[in-house]
Simulated scan of single mutants.
Amino acid sequence: MVEVRALGLEGVYVIRPPKFEDDRGFFSETWNADKLAQAGIAVDFVQDNHSLSRPRGVMRGLHFQTPPFAQDKLVRVLSGAVFDVAVDIRQGSPTFGRWVGVTLSEMAWNQILVPKGFAHGFVTLEPDTEVAYKVSAPYSQPHDRTLRFDDPALSIDWPVPADKMILSAKDASAPFLADVETGFVHS
């Protein structure tokens, strides 16, 4: 049975699918729409993404896409480990600007579901970390946005010091949440 646990922000869940192991290896359904729908999670995914981060400390995020290309994301680690974060960016939400984080790893076999209206990012905790994630809308460059991973208003407690993180130019120059029109309103 798939394990689904709420993380404290509306719509953000840790999901752990069953893993059947024997002397040959293992088998797991990492996504089953019917079983997740029974748990109250119904998302139509349209694209799979895969990233490799060679060194420890690679920061990817905080990313989101504005409507109508907003994305739900289901993120899992294929090898290595990350500290994964979701930030509520829905104007008017009682949890606006709050974040939750979870360590995802190949050993824990866990995933995080990050719904539309949340910025998402992770920092690698091990070298050669591979992350795979499903999204519910295709990538759209005009709708792509980034927030500062170290925005003091968010106070995210990253397990890797900021001066030890490796960022893309886009992420290093990202604006603060107060300076971004997210396009999301809590209903």
Rank of each mutant, 00 (worst) to 15 (best):
G117Y: 15
H50S: 03
A153R: 10
D48N: 05
P55G: 02
Q47R: 00
D171T: 11
L154D: 02
T103G: 06
E126C: 05
W158T: 14
V123L: 06
E181F: 05
L74R: 01
T146L: 12
V135D: 05
F122E: 11
F118M: 12
D88I: 07
P142W: 09
L125M: 07
H143M: 02
M165P: 08
G121E: 04
D48I: 00
R148T: 01
V114K: 10
S155H: 04
R60L: 13
D151A: 12
V87R: 14
I112N: 00
R90H: 11
N110D: 13
L78S: 00
D84S: 11
L104W: 01
V75I: 14
A172Y: 03
Q65G: 13
F122S: 02
R148D: 07
D171I: 10
L154W: 05
Y133W: 12
R60V: 12
V160R: 06
V82C: 10
H120N: 14
R60M: 15
P127C: 03
L154A: 14
A132G: 07
A174M: 07
L125I: 05
L177C: 01
P127I: 01
P68Y: 14
P67S: 08
V114F: 06
E126Y: 08
L167H: 10
S155P: 02
T182Q: 15
Q71S: 15
A137T: 09
H120K: 14
A137P: 13
L125R: 02
S155I: 02
H50T: 04
Y133G: 00
Y139T: 09
Q65P: 11
D72W: 08
L113D: 02
Q141N: 10
L104E: 01
A137V: 07
Q47S: 00
D163C: 03
P55A: 10
I166Q: 11
E126P: 04
V46D: 00
M107P: 08
E130C: 09
F149E: 10
G101A: 11
P142D: 02
R56C: 12
V180C: 08
M107Q: 15
G117K: 14
Q71P: 14
F118L: 15
V102C: 02
V135A: 09
K164A: 13
